[in-house]
Design a protein around this nucleic acid. Structure first.
Length: 953
RNA sequence: GGGCUCGUAGCUCAGUUGGUUAGAGCGCGUCCCUGAUAAGGACGAGGUCAUUGGUUCGAAUCCAAUCGGGCCCA
């Protein structure tokens, strides 16, 4: 220690227990415990029980595995918006949910059971699935809670709960009532090995060698051919098609052409034999080459559209079929004419429906042909049929060419065998059939689901971002009827019964009868109870004797269940309301949950289930590409939370523009820690300078505008306005940046830095110091509140270290507080210009200080003096009101005024090195002319001398 | 292949109805402070606004095409 007088003890140096290191990982769980004891969620709702409701309806994640980064982003966004609305004083109940039924869980259980599966009953398998889903719903619940998501975690909704199942059936009953449910054949992936339908998720693509063939179909009505083809009189004319699945030819019911394609009638010669065939112009040469044939001549051409009306005779089935047009016809392979079998392909099926063709499928569940085909094919396995059919076509003289190709082909992922497309009976909801919604005559009259959905998307829903509307509209325009049946065990049974004649019993009341049973016993009842028990109080009439009924085997598409959540949750709970204010999910849900919630809601009530739809993008690697689990950039949500704490992950989520892709990696998140620390340290600095400040006793009522305090106060008001607007518009990254930059610039670089001298050196209760503390205290309160939706843990921690007054005084948590309001109207234009001038002078001074540092070794701004050259009395008087701000804003020791020369602008600042002119005050380190003027304290400036004297008296 | 969408400094973001040398914060570099100290401050270097071609007196901003991503389909 030096023997110079040490004045450090006489300073009001910052003091606080608020630690610099957050130790989030260690401390967050303790705070969760505090909230639990406080019953924070219930308490917040209670404190807003008469306030307007704001309802966000949670989309149910699948109850499978740990939460991942997408869940983290989704739930964080929901929580932040809920908390913002709560901060604004609204009542924001939040009921989380889980999607529990479905294939992934059923598969998992099947894998676990292995061969034992065959010995188990459906009910036993379903019980395992139930346990599995319960386990993961519980696990994810705890992980979400660890993230700080506030909600009714004691009473979440699960789609497999009996009450929920019954509610889903009620939605179905309304569809039945509206007359929109029907049954029809539709091709699905079919595993011959397991004799079962397969979902998309059960398909894996493997390379396979198949025989591809070019086949000639003879045209039946030659007079329908466009004359521009110049078909030669008296000779047969053919359509040439190409297929890699010869076994589907018996089910051929049409040939599709591209409506805008340019087709030619070509005379080919192969092995000395001539024939005329229609093919697309750009493939003529490739066809000739492939078949080692010559193009003798091109007879004529015609556009695809003009070929409709042409009919051809099937080469070995007794039928005549049409030429149709389809958009999916391409000219990359084949002939430009596509063999169409509506019972054996998705595209073919759509075309078949469009043209009113049969959905004909002569293939049985065991992969063998039925009796509707010629003798020579009957009972043949489709794979064997390939060769038989090719041989037959050759014999008939209509096989132009055959060659082996290797292509990627869908396989059953369990048996590893190739699948086929096979038409089976499925249940549908009609989207184009007009109906009366839910008995509400006023709700749109007699319109179809599609019309209602399009109209709702057009002008009844707000989309964030706005382009969601276009995306949803496009999907609604093109979507086919909704196929709601699945051939699975783990799901909600479709409550249909069949009598001995195979007629279906499906009425609103039969569905409701089953729903009542499910509400009591859960949907397992479908597998344990008899039809008579399931229909207990319902009389289906003489056509359907209860003791002779057979139960449907199909279950619902899980989307029908999650898409009915508005009914089970929003209408089913008294604390919520229908429709919801907001649905918020990833942008993939335009097709998924958003659309498939809208359809049931419109079908049952005529009203969309949400007023606003918000979507967020997906996580990608820093280079913008898709991430996979094996990438080093893959982020494991649970691991990141354990490493950095939830608040950091939450803040990071709020910092990115979620409308687009979200670049992420462990490194990105780690480096983001700087932003958190900046905010935390700024809060800590504010708190540390408020240790002796009691807002209810020490606050200064008037903050003069012409002061840094006035400027800072106005900046804070502006921050409140802008952050509030950003939250209201769901622009979290904007809110984050405003808050962060306010900490970094307004407080840390400018205001907080400038105020050090007076905070530390003025006597504790000096007006100047108290005025600054008044502003800083408001800053701390405002920042804590505005940050509280994002930094739920840190803001609450800050709250505890903050001495509070008024309505905030007794609140045990910041999450019970109300949003901050600006203290004053926005400043006048004139006032704004005045502050701009002050900050401009500050910038000038800092540049000069930097120059002096480099040129003269002036390292401490306190050794410098700012001299303001002013040639305007009004400006001088204005500046003088700023007092010590004029030196403190640049960290200088002293300031003075001087006359400006006429050539200079109204006011300029000159920075002077005063190391050889003034003494430095031993206490404030400010170098100024008044040091030593008080004989009792020869080493102090007057201000410091008075401060020390006051404290020692 | 189709629908929707994105592409501004190393990173995260601003850039209103087209108008002076394209901004901020962070990071980085250099330096300062040591009374916010595993903190704080100052200054500085970074961009052919994905590319190309149009419209215009003038375009990051409007139009078209191309390239490269993403989501959903096929």
């Amino acid at each position: 220690m030096s023997d110079k007088p040490n004045y450090k003890d006489t300073l009001n140096l910052p003091k606080t227990d608020f630690p610099m290191a957050a130790k989030l990982v260690e401390n967050e769980p303790k705070r969760l415990e505090k909230w639990r004891e406080l019953k924070l969620y219930e308490r917040i709702l209670e404190s807003r029980k008469d306030a307007p409701l704001w309802v966000l309806h949670d989309g149910p994640p699948f109850a499978n595995g740990d939460i991942h980064i997408g869940h983290l982003i989704n739930k964080t966004l929901k929580d932040v918006f809920l908390r913002w609305h709560s901060l604004k004083g609204e009542r924001t109940p939040y009921v989380p949910g889980w999607d529990c039924h479905g294939l992934p869980i059923e598969h998992k259980i099947q894998q676990e059971l292995g061969p034992k599966l065959r010995e188990m009953s459906t009910v036993e398998v379903r019980r395992r699935c139930f346990e599995y889903a319960s386990k993961y719903a519980t696990l994810q619940s705890s992980q979400f809670q660890r993230l700080g998501i506030l909600g009714d975690w004691e009473n979440p909704y699960l789609t497999m709960k009996p009450a929920y199942e019954a509610s889903t059936l009620e939605v179905f009953a309304r569809f039945v009532e509206a007359g929109l449910v029907y049954k029809q054949l539709k091709p699905v992936y079919w595993s011959i090995a397991n004799q079962t339908a397969l979902a998309d998720a059960e398909i894996e693509y493997q390379d396979r060698d198949d025989m591809s063939i070019y086949v000639l179909f003879e045209i039946e009505n030659r007079d329908a051919l466009p004359s521009s083809l110049n078909a030669p009189a008296g000779e047969p004319v053919h359509l040439m098609i190409w297929t890699t699945t010869p076994w589907t030819l018996p089910a051929n019911l049409a040939v599709a052409v591209a409506p805008q394609g340019n087709y030619q009638l070509v005379t080919f010669e192969k092995n000395g034999r001539r024939f005329h065939a229609v093919v697309v112009d750009q493939l003529v040469n490739r066809i000739a080459e492939a078949g080692k044939a010559q193009v003798v001549q091109v007879l004529g051409s015609a556009v695809g559209d003009t070929l409709t009306g042409v009919k051809y005779r099937h080469p070995f089935m007794d039928r005549v079929c049409p030429v149709v047009t389809a958009d999916y016809v391409t000219f990359e392979d084949g002939t430009g004419l596509v063999h169409t079998a509506p019972g054996h392909g998705e595209d073919d099926y759509q075309t078949g429906r469009a043209y009113g063709l049969d959905i004909y499928c002569p293939v049985l569940a065991n992969g063998r042909f039925d009796d509707t085909v010629p003798d020579w094919l009957r009972n043949q396995l489709v794979w064997d049929a390939n060769e038989i059919i090719i041989r037959r076509l050759d014999e008939l003289g209509v096989l132009y060419h055959q060659q082996t190709i290797r292509h990627s082909y869908p396989h059953d992922w369990r048996s590893k065998t190739p699948t086929i497309f096979r038409a089976t009976e499925q249940w549908f909801i009609a989207v184009d059939k007009p109906f009366q919604a839910g008995g509400q005559e006023s709700a749109g009259g007699s319109k179809s689901l599609r019309e209602r959905a399009l109209s709702a998307a057009k002008d009844q829903i707000r989309f964030v971002p706005e382009w969601g509307r276009a995306r949803m509209t496009g999907m609604l325009e093109s979507r086919p009827d909704w196929c709601i049946s699945r051939q699975r065990a783990w799901g909600l049974p479709i409550p249909v019964f069949y009598n001995e004649q195979g007629e279906a019993l499906l009425t609103p009341e039969s569905v409701r009868a089953v729903a009542r049973r499910f509400a009591e016993k859960g949907s397992d009842a479908w597998f344990t109870d008899s039809p008579a028990e399931l229909l207990k109080d319902y009389d289906p009439g003489p056509k359907f004797p209860k003791d002779k009924l057979r139960k449907e085997k199909d279950i619902f598409d899980v989307w029908f269940e999650s898409g009915s959540s508005w009914h089970a949750v929003l209408l089913g709970r008294s604390d919520l309301r229908y429709p919801a204010d907001l649905y918020l999910e990833g942008s993939d849900q335009h097709r998924g949950w958003f659309q498939l919630s809208m359809l049931p809601a419109l079908g049952a009530t005529g009203q969309a289930p949400f007023k606003q739809v918000l979507t967020h993008g997906f996580v990608v690697k820093p280079d913008g590409r898709k991430v996979s689990k094996s990438d080093k950039e893959y982020v494991t949500a649970t691991k990141e939370i354990e490493t950095h704490g939830a608040d950091l992950l939450r803040l990071w989520t709020c910092s990115v523009d979620y409308e687009g892709d979200i670049p992420t990696s462990p490194q990105v998140i780690r480096e983001f820690g700087d932003k958190y620390r900046k905010i935390r340290n700024t809060l800590r600095y504010l708190l540390s300078n408020l240790y002796d400040f009691d807002p209810s006793a020490d606050a200064v009522a008037e903050i003069p505008a012409s002061s840094l305090d006035g400027w800072a106060s106005a900046e804070l008001d502006e921050l409140i306005r802008q952050v509030s607007a950003a939250y209201d518009n769901y622009q979290l990254h904007r809110a984050f940046r405003l808050l962060h930059d306010f900490c970094a610039v307004q407080i840390s670089a400018i205001y907080g830095n400038a105020m050090k001298d007076r905070l530390y050196c003025e006597k504790p209760d000096s007006p100047l110091r108290r005025r600054c503390q008044t502003v800083m205290h408001r800053m701390a309160v405002v920042l804590t509140k505005l940050l509280s939706p994002m930094l739920v843990f840190t803001a609450d921690e800050t709250w505890e270290h903050l001495r509070r007054a008024g309505e905030d005084a007794d609140l045990p948590s910041v999450h019970l507080a109300r949003a901050p309001q600006p203290a004053a109207e926005p400043p006048s234009e004139e006032q704004r210009r005045e502050w701009e001038l002050i900050l401009k002078l500050r910038d000038d001074a800092l540049l000069q200080l930097d120059a002096l540092k480099k040129e003269a070794g002036l390292n401490k701004a306190l050794d410098a003096e700012l001299v303001f050259h002013v040639n305007d009395d009004a400006i001088r008087q204005k500046l003088q009101q700023y007092g010590p701000d004029l030196e403190d804003m640049a960290g200088a020791g002293h300031h003075a005024f001087a006359e400006a020369s006429a050539s200079e602008s109204a006011v300029t600042v000159k920075v002077l090195d005063r190391r050889n002119d003034y003494q430095a005050c031993a206490r404030s380190w400010k170098r100024r002319p008044d040091v030593g003027q008080d004989p009792n304290y020869p080493d102090l400036s007057l201000r410091d001398a008075q401060a020390v004297a006051a404290m020692r008296s």
